[in-house]
């Protein structure tokens, strides 16, 4: 039963884990290494990890000038932040009402929520695109954000969490003279903080990485989000200038990866808790 006693089994186990981790991390290693290689290095020695001619500066300069990286990152942050704020402001009151208040539409609403959980953006994209086109709101933050302001999954997650909050707490708050909004703001949300952070991680990861919807509603660089911007960069970068390409990918992946490395525990907890929907 003691792990220490079975040294052979343990050695096998550890080497499998280390080998697997090396393979999973290899793309990152090559990304970082290639981002610093000059064109000649890339063609002559793809397996050496240390660049022979350090070209980080040139590659990064190229990556930053072809596409406005700051613009992309700003758009990414703005879109994710707007989506998250709206989602939370709209989902939390609804989830609270469904979890803790008695009213007749609750059952019907629960059905609608379960139904909504099934429907990804890919299924609603066509009519929304047609409608946004008619309204002439394509190529705007509005187009990027609006369809995601309602997160059925958010309602579902908060609903589960709120159910666990004792009714007595809410009754006490009512006796203390709080309004329903006051209860949400001062009693429910502070107690639901783990659910809010978990949902934040889920939401930001999903929308930072989303390509499908931005690709549909955005057709110029002004409103491009990071994944879309990278597509433009690839299109502009004819041929195999992998050095610049890797520099660009490095710039674009870094924010979320850094956030993950800094707040790993939260990330893993958040993913475990939200676990649903990719």
């Amino acid at each position: 039963m003691n792990a220490q006693t079975f040294t052979l089994g343990r050695a096998v186990r550890l080497s499998v884990l280390i080998f697997g981790a090396a393979i999973f991390l290899a793309p990152y290693v090559f990304m970082i290494s290639t981002a610093g290689k000059a064109q000649s290095d890339i063609f002559s020695s793809s397996l050496s990890l240390i660049p022979q001619h350090w070209s980080y500066v040139q590659n990064f300069a190229k990556a930053l000038t072809r596409v406005s990286m700051t613009r992309l990152l700003f758009n990414g942050v703005a879109v994710c932040a707007l989506i998250f704020v709206f989602q939370v402001m709209i989902a939390i009151p609804c989830a609270y009402a469904m979890a803790k208040l008695k009213f007749r539409a609750a059952r019907l609403m629960m059905m609608l929520v379960m139904l909504g959980l099934l429907v990804p953006i890919h299924a609603t994209a066509l009519p929304l695109y047609v409608a946004f086109d008619r309204l002439a709101v394509l190529n705007s933050y509005f187009a990027l954000v609006a369809p995601f302001t309602i997160s059925v999954f958010g309602i579902f997650l908060f609903l589960q969490f709120f159910r666990a909050i004792p009714d007595d707490l809410i009754h006490a708050a009512r006796l203390d003279g709080m309004s329903e909004l006051g209860i949400i703001g001062r009693v429910i949300v502070p107690n639901a903080w783990p659910a809010v952070t978990a949902f934040a991680i889920f939401s930001v990861v999903a929308h930072w990485n989303d390509l499908y919807w931005p690709l549909i509603v955005v057709s110029n660089q002004t409103y491009a989000t990071p994944p879309l911007g990278l597509l433009y960069f690839r299109a502009a970068e004819a041929g195999d200038d992998y050095g610049a390409l890797m520099a660009a990918t490095l710039i674009i992946t870094t924010p979320l990866v850094a956030a993950f490395l800094l707040a790993q525990k939260r990330f893993v907890e958040g993913i475990t808790m939200t676990g649903l929907k990719g």
Binding site: P27, F30, N209, P226, L230, T249, I252, T253, L261
Partner: peptide, 24 residues
């Protein structure tokens, strides 16, 4: 460490990492 290593791709921008895979 292992958890982080295997989880890293989930937190990475897929479009970007696809580009890396294209190079690989």
């Amino acid at each position: 460490f292992f958890r982080t290593a295997y989880f890293l791709p989930v937190a990475s921008l897929l479009v970007a990492m696809a580009t890396v895979w294209q190079y690989l």
